[in-house]
Protein backbone atom coordinates (compact mmCIF):
# COMPACT_ATOMS: atom_id res chain seq x y z
CA UNK A 1 0.00 0.00 0.00
CA UNK A 2 1.46 3.35 -1.01
CA UNK A 3 1.59 6.29 1.37
CA UNK A 4 -1.09 8.35 -0.38
CA UNK A 5 -3.48 5.41 -0.52
CA UNK A 6 -2.87 4.78 3.16
CA UNK A 7 -3.75 8.37 4.07
CA UNK A 8 -6.83 8.35 1.86
CA UNK A 9 -8.23 5.18 3.34
CA UNK A 10 -7.45 6.41 6.85
CA UNK A 11 -9.31 9.64 6.19
CA UNK A 12 -12.24 7.81 4.61
CA UNK A 13 -12.46 5.63 7.71
CA UNK A 14 -12.45 8.65 10.02
CA UNK A 15 -15.14 10.40 8.04
CA UNK A 16 -17.43 7.39 8.00
CA UNK A 17 -16.86 6.39 11.63
CA UNK A 18 -17.39 9.91 12.90
CA UNK A 19 -20.53 10.07 10.74
CA UNK A 20 -19.23 13.34 9.34
CA UNK A 21 -20.30 11.99 5.98
CA UNK A 22 -22.76 9.30 5.03
CA UNK A 23 -20.91 8.09 1.98
CA UNK A 24 -17.49 8.16 0.44
CA UNK A 25 -16.94 8.02 -3.31
CA UNK A 26 -13.65 6.45 -4.25
CA UNK A 27 -12.18 3.55 -6.19
CA UNK A 28 -12.78 -0.11 -5.43
CA UNK A 29 -10.41 -2.86 -6.44
CA UNK A 30 -11.50 -4.80 -9.45
CA UNK A 31 -10.87 -8.31 -10.65
CA UNK A 32 -7.33 -7.32 -11.54
CA UNK A 33 -4.88 -4.83 -10.17
CA UNK A 34 -5.30 -2.63 -13.21
CA UNK A 35 -9.08 -2.33 -13.28
CA UNK A 36 -10.22 -0.48 -10.15
CA UNK A 37 -13.63 1.07 -10.61
CA UNK A 38 -15.48 4.02 -9.08
CA UNK A 39 -17.49 2.97 -6.04
CA UNK A 40 -19.60 4.29 -3.19
CA UNK A 41 -18.58 3.23 0.31
CA UNK A 42 -21.08 3.53 3.10
CA UNK A 43 -19.36 1.59 5.90
CA UNK A 44 -15.90 1.10 7.33
CA UNK A 45 -16.29 -2.56 6.49
CA UNK A 46 -16.53 -1.80 2.78
CA UNK A 47 -13.34 0.26 2.86
CA UNK A 48 -11.22 -2.87 2.83
CA UNK A 49 -11.71 -2.88 -0.95
CA UNK A 50 -10.74 0.79 -1.36
CA UNK A 51 -7.76 1.32 -3.65
CA UNK A 52 -5.83 4.29 -5.00
CA UNK A 53 -3.18 3.16 -7.41
CA UNK A 54 -1.72 4.13 -10.79
CA UNK A 55 -4.82 2.94 -12.60
CA UNK A 56 -7.33 5.17 -10.76
CA UNK A 57 -7.73 7.48 -13.75
CA UNK A 58 -11.51 7.65 -13.46
CA UNK A 59 -12.96 11.09 -12.67
CA UNK A 60 -15.34 10.65 -9.72
CA UNK A 61 -17.06 14.01 -9.84
CA UNK A 62 -19.94 12.93 -12.08
CA UNK A 63 -21.01 10.16 -9.68
CA UNK A 64 -22.06 12.84 -7.24
CA UNK A 65 -24.99 13.80 -9.46
CA UNK A 66 -26.84 10.54 -8.89
CA UNK A 67 -25.56 9.87 -5.37
CA UNK A 68 -26.61 13.27 -4.05
CA UNK A 69 -30.17 12.63 -5.17
CA UNK A 70 -30.33 9.84 -2.62
CA UNK A 71 -29.53 12.32 0.14
CA UNK A 72 -26.85 12.55 2.81
CA UNK A 73 -23.45 14.12 2.91
CA UNK A 74 -20.75 12.73 0.64
CA UNK A 75 -16.98 12.87 0.71
CA UNK A 76 -15.34 12.55 -2.69
CA UNK A 77 -11.71 12.08 -3.61
CA UNK A 78 -10.74 14.24 -6.55
CA UNK A 79 -7.48 14.42 -8.46
CA UNK A 80 -6.46 17.91 -9.64
CA UNK A 81 -8.10 17.61 -13.07
CA UNK A 82 -11.28 16.16 -11.52
CA UNK A 83 -11.74 19.26 -9.35
CA UNK A 84 -12.43 21.31 -12.48
CA UNK A 85 -15.27 18.99 -13.44
CA UNK A 86 -16.64 19.33 -9.92
CA UNK A 87 -16.75 23.12 -10.19
CA UNK A 88 -18.45 22.93 -13.55
CA UNK A 89 -21.13 20.67 -12.05
CA UNK A 90 -21.65 23.11 -9.17
CA UNK A 91 -21.94 25.96 -11.67
CA UNK A 92 -24.68 24.14 -13.53
CA UNK A 93 -26.56 23.27 -10.35
CA UNK A 94 -26.00 19.57 -10.84
CA UNK A 95 -24.18 19.25 -7.55
CA UNK A 96 -24.86 21.02 -4.26
CA UNK A 97 -21.40 21.81 -2.96
CA UNK A 98 -22.68 22.16 0.60
CA UNK A 99 -23.55 18.48 0.61
CA UNK A 100 -20.07 17.48 -0.52
CA UNK A 101 -16.68 17.33 1.13
CA UNK A 102 -14.02 17.57 -1.55
CA UNK A 103 -10.82 15.83 -0.58
CA UNK A 104 -8.26 16.82 -3.17
CA UNK A 105 -5.61 14.19 -3.61
CA UNK A 106 -2.18 13.85 -5.11
CA UNK A 107 -1.83 12.60 -8.65
CA UNK A 108 1.42 12.04 -10.51
CA UNK A 109 -0.36 11.04 -13.71
CA UNK A 110 -2.31 7.82 -14.24
CA UNK A 111 -1.26 4.81 -16.27
CA UNK A 112 -2.72 3.47 -19.47
CA UNK A 113 -3.00 -0.32 -19.26
CA UNK A 114 -3.36 -0.52 -23.03
CA UNK A 115 0.04 1.12 -23.51
CA UNK A 116 1.59 -1.29 -21.00
CA UNK A 117 0.03 -4.25 -22.78
CA UNK A 118 1.40 -2.96 -26.06
CA UNK A 119 4.83 -3.08 -24.48
CA UNK A 120 4.30 -6.81 -24.06
CA UNK A 121 3.55 -6.81 -20.36
CA UNK A 122 0.38 -8.58 -19.28
CA UNK A 123 -1.09 -9.79 -16.00
CA UNK A 124 0.08 -6.70 -14.11
CA UNK A 125 0.11 -7.27 -10.37
CA UNK A 126 1.54 -3.98 -9.14
CA UNK A 127 3.12 -0.75 -10.25
CA UNK A 128 5.48 1.51 -8.47
CA UNK A 129 6.28 5.06 -9.39
CA UNK A 130 9.85 6.13 -8.95
CA UNK A 131 10.34 9.67 -10.17
CA UNK A 132 10.20 9.62 -13.95
CA UNK A 133 10.15 5.85 -14.00
CA UNK A 134 7.44 3.28 -13.51
CA UNK A 135 8.23 -0.24 -12.41
CA UNK A 136 5.54 -2.63 -13.54
CA UNK A 137 5.40 -6.02 -11.85
CA UNK A 138 3.49 -8.84 -13.43
CA UNK A 139 2.99 -12.54 -12.98
CA UNK A 140 5.88 -12.96 -15.38
CA UNK A 141 8.41 -10.65 -13.75
CA UNK A 142 8.88 -6.92 -13.75
CA UNK A 143 9.64 -4.22 -16.30
CA UNK A 144 10.77 -0.62 -16.12
CA UNK A 145 9.31 2.14 -18.30
CA UNK A 146 9.78 5.83 -18.68
CA UNK A 147 6.63 7.48 -17.42
CA UNK A 148 5.73 9.18 -20.72
CA UNK A 149 5.67 5.76 -22.38
CA UNK A 150 2.82 4.48 -20.25
CA UNK A 151 0.82 7.52 -19.07
CA UNK A 152 -2.77 8.09 -20.19
CA UNK A 153 -3.09 10.66 -22.98
CA UNK A 154 -4.90 13.04 -20.61
CA UNK A 155 -2.01 12.82 -18.15
CA UNK A 156 0.70 13.28 -20.76
CA UNK A 157 -0.79 16.67 -21.54
CA UNK A 158 -2.05 17.35 -17.98
CA UNK A 159 -3.55 20.84 -17.96
CA UNK A 160 -2.79 21.58 -14.32
CA UNK A 161 -1.80 20.05 -11.02
CA UNK A 162 -3.58 22.84 -9.19
CA UNK A 163 -6.73 22.04 -7.25
CA UNK A 164 -9.63 24.19 -8.44
CA UNK A 165 -11.49 23.31 -5.26
CA UNK A 166 -10.49 21.53 -2.05
CA UNK A 167 -12.04 21.27 1.39
CA UNK A 168 -8.92 19.38 2.42
CA UNK A 169 -5.93 17.94 0.60
CA UNK A 170 -3.88 14.79 0.76
CA UNK A 171 -0.56 15.39 -0.94
CA UNK A 172 2.62 13.60 0.05
CA UNK A 173 4.97 14.25 -2.85
CA UNK A 174 5.26 17.42 -4.87
CA UNK A 175 3.25 17.34 -8.10
CA UNK A 176 5.15 18.68 -11.10
CA UNK A 177 3.40 20.41 -13.98
CA UNK A 178 3.97 18.78 -17.34
CA UNK A 179 5.78 20.73 -20.01
CA UNK A 180 3.81 19.13 -22.81
CA UNK A 181 1.63 21.32 -25.00
CA UNK A 182 -1.89 19.92 -24.95
CA UNK A 183 -2.82 21.67 -28.20
CA UNK A 184 -0.06 20.22 -30.37
CA UNK A 185 -2.37 17.42 -31.51
CA UNK A 186 -4.98 19.97 -32.56
CA UNK A 187 -2.39 22.03 -34.41
CA UNK A 188 -1.37 18.94 -36.34
CA UNK A 189 -4.97 18.55 -37.48
CA UNK A 190 -5.22 22.23 -38.34
CA UNK A 191 -2.23 21.92 -40.62
CA UNK A 192 -4.01 19.25 -42.66
CA UNK A 193 -5.95 20.13 -45.78
CA UNK A 194 -9.71 19.92 -45.46
CA UNK A 195 -9.72 16.65 -47.38
CA UNK A 196 -7.01 15.15 -45.19
CA UNK A 197 -8.78 16.24 -42.05
CA UNK A 198 -12.09 14.82 -43.21
CA UNK A 199 -10.38 11.58 -44.09
CA UNK A 200 -8.75 11.53 -40.64
CA UNK A 201 -12.03 11.98 -38.78
CA UNK A 202 -13.90 9.68 -41.07
CA UNK A 203 -11.31 7.03 -40.33
CA UNK A 204 -11.37 7.61 -36.59
CA UNK A 205 -15.10 8.09 -36.12
CA UNK A 206 -15.95 5.11 -38.30
CA UNK A 207 -14.49 2.95 -35.58
CA UNK A 208 -17.25 4.11 -33.23
CA UNK A 209 -19.63 1.40 -32.10
CA UNK A 210 -22.00 3.86 -30.41
CA UNK A 211 -21.52 2.27 -27.01
CA UNK A 212 -22.12 5.76 -25.52
CA UNK A 213 -19.29 5.28 -23.03
CA UNK A 214 -17.88 8.71 -23.85
CA UNK A 215 -21.22 10.33 -23.20
CA UNK A 216 -21.94 8.37 -20.06
CA UNK A 217 -18.60 9.16 -18.48
CA UNK A 218 -18.55 12.83 -19.50
CA UNK A 219 -19.13 15.15 -16.51
CA UNK A 220 -20.58 17.76 -18.89
CA UNK A 221 -23.17 15.27 -20.19
CA UNK A 222 -25.76 15.32 -17.44
CA UNK A 223 -28.94 16.07 -19.36
CA UNK A 224 -32.08 14.56 -17.89
CA UNK A 225 -32.72 13.15 -21.31
CA UNK A 226 -29.97 13.16 -23.90
CA UNK A 227 -31.11 14.44 -27.29
CA UNK A 228 -29.78 11.24 -28.81
CA UNK A 229 -32.14 9.20 -26.65
CA UNK A 230 -35.11 11.45 -27.17
CA UNK A 231 -37.47 10.32 -29.88
CA UNK A 232 -39.13 13.73 -29.94
CA UNK A 233 -35.87 15.52 -30.74
CA UNK A 234 -36.03 14.30 -34.31
CA UNK A 235 -32.42 13.24 -34.05
CA UNK A 236 -32.67 9.86 -32.39
CA UNK A 237 -35.17 8.52 -34.88
CA UNK A 238 -33.64 9.97 -38.01
CA UNK A 239 -32.31 7.41 -40.44
CA UNK A 240 -28.75 8.32 -41.40
CA UNK A 241 -28.17 9.22 -45.03
CA UNK A 242 -24.94 7.21 -45.04
CA UNK A 243 -22.93 5.15 -42.59
CA UNK A 244 -20.79 8.12 -41.62
CA UNK A 245 -23.70 10.39 -40.69
CA UNK A 246 -24.32 8.27 -37.61
CA UNK A 247 -20.89 9.22 -36.33
CA UNK A 248 -21.72 12.91 -36.48
CA UNK A 249 -22.91 12.09 -32.98
CA UNK A 250 -19.45 12.99 -31.75
CA UNK A 251 -19.41 16.34 -33.50
CA UNK A 252 -22.79 17.25 -32.03
CA UNK A 253 -21.65 16.10 -28.61
CA UNK A 254 -18.52 18.24 -28.88
CA UNK A 255 -20.74 21.24 -29.66
CA UNK A 256 -22.98 20.47 -26.70
CA UNK A 257 -20.10 20.43 -24.22
CA UNK A 258 -18.19 23.33 -25.80
CA UNK A 259 -17.39 26.01 -23.26
CA UNK A 260 -18.23 23.59 -20.44
CA UNK A 261 -15.71 20.85 -21.23
CA UNK A 262 -12.82 21.04 -18.73
CA UNK A 263 -10.64 18.76 -20.86
CA UNK A 264 -10.68 16.01 -18.24
CA UNK A 265 -9.99 13.53 -21.03
CA UNK A 266 -12.37 10.86 -19.77
CA UNK A 267 -13.98 10.44 -23.21
CA UNK A 268 -10.76 9.26 -24.80
CA UNK A 269 -9.80 7.17 -21.76
CA UNK A 270 -12.97 5.11 -21.81
CA UNK A 271 -13.36 4.74 -25.57
CA UNK A 272 -13.03 1.02 -26.29
CA UNK A 273 -12.16 1.88 -29.90
CA UNK A 274 -9.39 4.31 -28.93
CA UNK A 275 -10.87 7.23 -30.85
CA UNK A 276 -8.97 10.42 -29.90
CA UNK A 277 -12.18 12.22 -28.91
CA UNK A 278 -10.30 14.72 -26.76
CA UNK A 279 -9.04 16.33 -29.98
CA UNK A 280 -12.54 17.53 -30.83
CA UNK A 281 -12.97 19.14 -27.43
CA UNK A 282 -9.50 20.62 -27.46
CA UNK A 283 -10.13 22.21 -30.83
CA UNK A 284 -13.08 24.04 -29.25
CA UNK A 285 -11.01 25.02 -26.22
CA UNK A 286 -8.22 26.30 -28.45
CA UNK A 287 -10.62 28.34 -30.54
CA UNK A 288 -12.35 29.76 -27.46
CA UNK A 289 -8.99 30.85 -26.09
CA UNK A 290 -8.12 32.47 -29.39
CA UNK A 291 -11.40 34.25 -29.98
CA UNK A 292 -12.47 35.19 -26.47
CA UNK A 293 -9.30 35.11 -24.38
CA UNK A 294 -7.87 32.30 -22.28
CA UNK A 295 -10.55 30.39 -20.48
CA UNK A 296 -10.45 27.24 -18.40
CA UNK A 297 -13.83 25.70 -17.67
CA UNK A 298 -14.19 24.68 -14.05
CA UNK A 299 -11.59 27.06 -12.69
CA UNK A 300 -14.41 28.63 -10.67
CA UNK A 301 -17.80 27.33 -9.59
CA UNK A 302 -19.69 30.39 -10.82
CA UNK A 303 -19.64 32.79 -13.76
CA UNK A 304 -20.37 32.44 -17.45
CA UNK A 305 -18.30 30.68 -20.05
CA UNK A 306 -17.30 32.80 -23.07
CA UNK A 307 -19.79 31.10 -25.38
CA UNK A 308 -22.75 32.34 -23.40
CA UNK A 309 -21.39 35.78 -22.70
CA UNK A 310 -20.69 38.83 -24.80
CA UNK A 311 -17.93 41.32 -24.16
CA UNK A 312 -16.73 44.09 -26.42
CA UNK A 313 -13.36 42.35 -26.64
CA UNK A 314 -14.87 39.30 -28.33
CA UNK A 315 -13.63 38.64 -31.83
CA UNK A 316 -16.10 39.55 -34.55
CA UNK A 317 -17.77 36.24 -35.44
CA UNK A 318 -17.78 36.67 -39.21
CA UNK A 319 -14.15 37.70 -39.27
CA UNK A 320 -13.33 34.95 -36.80
CA UNK A 321 -14.41 32.13 -39.07
CA UNK A 322 -12.16 33.49 -41.76
CA UNK A 323 -9.09 32.77 -39.69
CA UNK A 324 -6.67 34.87 -37.81
CA UNK A 325 -8.91 37.13 -35.75
CA UNK A 326 -8.15 37.15 -32.07
CA UNK A 327 -9.54 38.29 -28.79
CA UNK A 328 -8.65 41.96 -28.29
Amino acid sequence: MNKVEELIVKRARELLSSKEVDKVIGWKKGEFYFDPSPAVFTSEEELKDFVYNGFCGANLSKYLVQELKKGGKIAVFLKPCDTYSFNELVKEHRVDKNAVKVIAIECQGKLDIEKIKEKGVSAVTETEENGEEVIVSSLYGSAKFRKEEVLLEKCLTCKSKKFAVADETIVVNEMKETANDRFSGVEELERMSEEERFAFWKGELSKCIRCNACRNVCPACTCVKCVFDNNASGMATKAPADTFEEQMFHIIRAYHVAGRCTDCGECSRVCPQHIPLHLLNRKFIKDINRLYGDFQAGEADEGKNPLIEYTEKDADPTAAVNGEVRHA
Binding site: K91, E92, H93, R94, T222, C223, V224, K225, N230, K304, I308, E309
Partner: peptide, 11 residues
Amino acid sequence: SMCNGCSQCAN
Protein backbone atom coordinates in the same frame (compact mmCIF):
# COMPACT_ATOMS: atom_id res chain seq x y z
CA SER B 1 -39.39 16.89 -18.34
CA MET B 2 -36.13 17.53 -20.17
CA CYS B 3 -34.74 20.62 -18.43
CA ASN B 4 -31.89 19.93 -16.04
CA GLY B 5 -31.72 23.44 -14.62
CA CYS B 6 -28.16 24.12 -15.75
CA SER B 7 -28.80 27.90 -15.99
CA GLN B 8 -27.22 28.34 -19.39
CA CYS B 9 -30.46 29.78 -20.78
CA ALA B 10 -30.76 32.33 -17.99
CA ASN B 11 -27.14 33.27 -18.60
